[in-house]
Design a protein around this nucleic acid. Structure first.
Length: 172
DNA sequence: TAGGCCATCTGGTCCT
DNA sequence: AGGACCAGATGGCCTA
């Protein structure tokens, strides 16, 4: 995988960097860093005031960094798993191509709106009286829906959702 | 080749 | 103090 190769390369660089840490020149290191990072390197006083933790030696810092990177990677993997799980429960027509993250979130939002509208449509006229405990769920759902959408038409969501599905299908 | 999407690294901030 | 979370930066891959 491309990214693992890159990560592996980076780890290798870090390991090599550890060995030559003391004699490393800042200029060659800075060439691969972000402008913000380079700026901080140019003005160490600025960064010193912000840094509260990395007062330990370079090797210790490097180890902690690698551990943090690993945790961050795991966190992002979990996030991606959640995205994948979401993709699998959203009906969409572009099955041959994976939905992007933004598409997934947008479709999910509209799918929820559509389901809510459908439920309200189905239960309209037969919602229990407000006093009954059983009305809580339906009542709250309706209340929440009204707060979110005001006078929007239920049909509108269905239309919006199906339009969106088709626009994704056409790749627009 | 430009633009979209993504994974990863990184430093700062928040939370426990 | 240390882990979780976040956002910016970077570079690779893919597609039109």
């Amino acid at each position: 995988m491309k990214t693992k190769t890159r990560a592996a390369r980076r780890r290798l660089e870090v390991e090599q960097d550890e060995e030559s840490h003391s004699q490393q020149t800042s200029s060659e290191e800075d060439s691969v860093k972000s402008p913000a990072y380079r700026e901080n390197r140019k003005n160490p006083e600025h960064i010193k005031s912000k840094k509260k933790r990395y007062s330990s030696n370079g090797k210790e810092h490097t180890i902690r960094r690698l551990e943090s990177n690993e945790r961050e990677r795991q966190r992002m993997h979990k996030l991606n798993n959640a995205f994948q799980a979401l993709r699998e429960v959203i009906p969409h027509v572009r099955a041959e191509k994976k939905l992007s993250k933004i598409e997934t979130l947008t479709l999910a939002k509209n799918y929820i709106n559509t389901l809510t509208a459908t439920i309200l449509n189905m239960s309209s006229g037969c919602l229990p009286p407000v006093q009954e405990p059983a009305s809580d769920i339906g009542g709250k759902l309706y209340q929440h829906y009204q707060q979110q959408h005001g006078d929007e038409d239920n049909e509108e969501h269905l239309e919006k959702y199906s339009t969106q599905i088709h626009s994704f299908r056409q790749g627009s």
